[in-house]
Design a binder for these strands. Structure first.
Lengths: 253, 253
DNA sequence: TCAATTTTCTTTCAGCAGCAAGCAATGGTT
DNA sequence: AACCATTGCTTGCTGCTGAAAGAAAATTGA
């Protein structure tokens, strides 16, 4: 059996059983434990499984991104500043998309100051936050609820987003690069974000400075589709310049 | 068993049973109590459970956060009893619809005891309640959020419901009459409820006894489409009999 | 309320299983 | 023949576990 083949079978096995031990895999495949360990190290480097003492377990989505409760408490100040700047861009009568995320959740919080706004969101926590505001109409996209966040995703989400047209979309992305554009570590979230960008006249990316220059596996959109980038003042001048040269209006707050 | 595997199983166990003792976990997994304590400390550090003297409990639900404040409900006891009876009807592997409402919210609360369930709902509060349960897949219908409740409604709701097929639908209705069937005072909610009934193999109406015999303006569905009615024991025998004669299985709890 | 008692918790230590790293052997490719 | 990738083996090291002991918390009975 080829090494690559064995690695694929290991991944398959763990997908099915959630866990596997080095000893057992070694026996099943009839190779030395050291070989299995080497395989596991490589698989882990590819981010497909997580190694533990004695074996390997499934990657939880949490490990690629911490849970909402954790994230909401990270870099709160930067997120709030970004949200405040974002709010300034929203005018009376606008219909906007708020992508699921903690920064956009801050935008939702501040939105109560505005009136006559329609908000489209794929985040039930954002929806709940806006729920008791009579001056804001909230449209929830629908879809499958992520167990580790409040995001909706899937066919219904895409369908809803494709049927709508808004003036501004506020997008969250875990990696944005001046040349390689917006990328995401999980392909299942790509479709929704693309639809959001397509449904909006103007696309605004809100993200803290740690995401700048990052690249992930799955391509979401080129930089050319981004109109505005709002990020923290911690962003380096070099980074900001690179985005500006790519035609993006950058606000650092 | 791997240490990591054991930790995952502990979390699973507590998710289902809400609590667990060190002694019992130690016995179940056949490891020393000190080992369990070490596991619990680590799990707590990850923020997934909360330690107590002698064991471990679930972390407080996110739904207790301000944006999901629980409204004070009337007839909570009756609703809880109805929910308990409803839960008994749900089997492993079922996919169910939970209509928006406080009685169905109680069903959602009790659902955590079940596993391998798919829940379709048009209520973001119900969705939030089920969100951190890994054994339950939650599909939100999408739609416009009602300012006075957590209900989603409108074209997206109808579209999603029409695309789905479930084994059981738990429907809430403000008026149900043995001859005139299900009626609603607001026509905008009629379409969703009809779709729910059509999408389900079995339709179960859950409602407190004050709604029995009531009639409103807009017709939703005839009694013939109802399979089961779960209501409070306060319902009069005459009323119950009338529904039974119309072919409905009635449970008074 | 307080002190005695019991239970549970934390810390420490030793033993063992699992681990990374280096090296040699194998087999295939240039 | 030289080279490279892959595997198996060995070695010293790391991390997990159970046992024990002292600390802390809960319970009991006055």
């Amino acid at each position: 059996m080829l090494a690559a083949e064995r690695k694929l079978k290991i991944i398959d096995y763990v997908r099915k059983h959630s866990v596997a031990s080095v000893a057992q895999l070694s026996q099943d495949f009839g190779v030395h434990e050291a070989t299995i360990r080497r395989d596991l190290s490589e698989i882990e480097k590819e981010g497909r499984l997580r190694r533990t003492h004695g074996g390997v377990v499934l990657v939880e989505r949490v490990s690629s991104e911490p849970s909402f409760t954790v994230r909401v408490n990270e870099r709160v100040e930067e997120k709030t500043s970004i949200a405040e700047r974002a709010i300034e861009m929203i005018n009376e009568g606008d219909s906007i998309i708020l992508d699921s995320g903690t920064t956009t959740f801050q935008i939702a919080r501040l939105l109560s100051a505005k009136s006559n706004i329609t908000v489209v969101t794929n985040d039930i926590k954002i929806a709940a936050e806006l729920q008791n505001n009579k001056d804001i109409k909230v449209i929830v996209t629908g879809g499958v609820l992520s167990p580790e966040s409040y995001m909706l995703n899937g066919l219904f989400t895409d369908h809803a987003l494709k049927k709508l047209h808004v003036t501004k979309a506020f997008i969250v992305i875990p990696a944005i690069h001046p040349k390689l554009g917006l990328t995401h570590f999980d392909d299942q979230f790509v479709s929704a974000k693309r639809s959001m960008i397509e449904s909006a006249e103007q696309t605004i990316v809100v993200t803290d400075h740690t995401k700048l220059g990052g690249v992930s596996l799955h391509n979401v959109a080129p930089v050319a589709q981004i109109d505005v980038l709002i990020t923290g003042k911690e962003a380096s001048e070099t980074q900001v310049k690179q985005f500006q040269e790519a035609g993006v209006t950058v606000y650092t707050v």
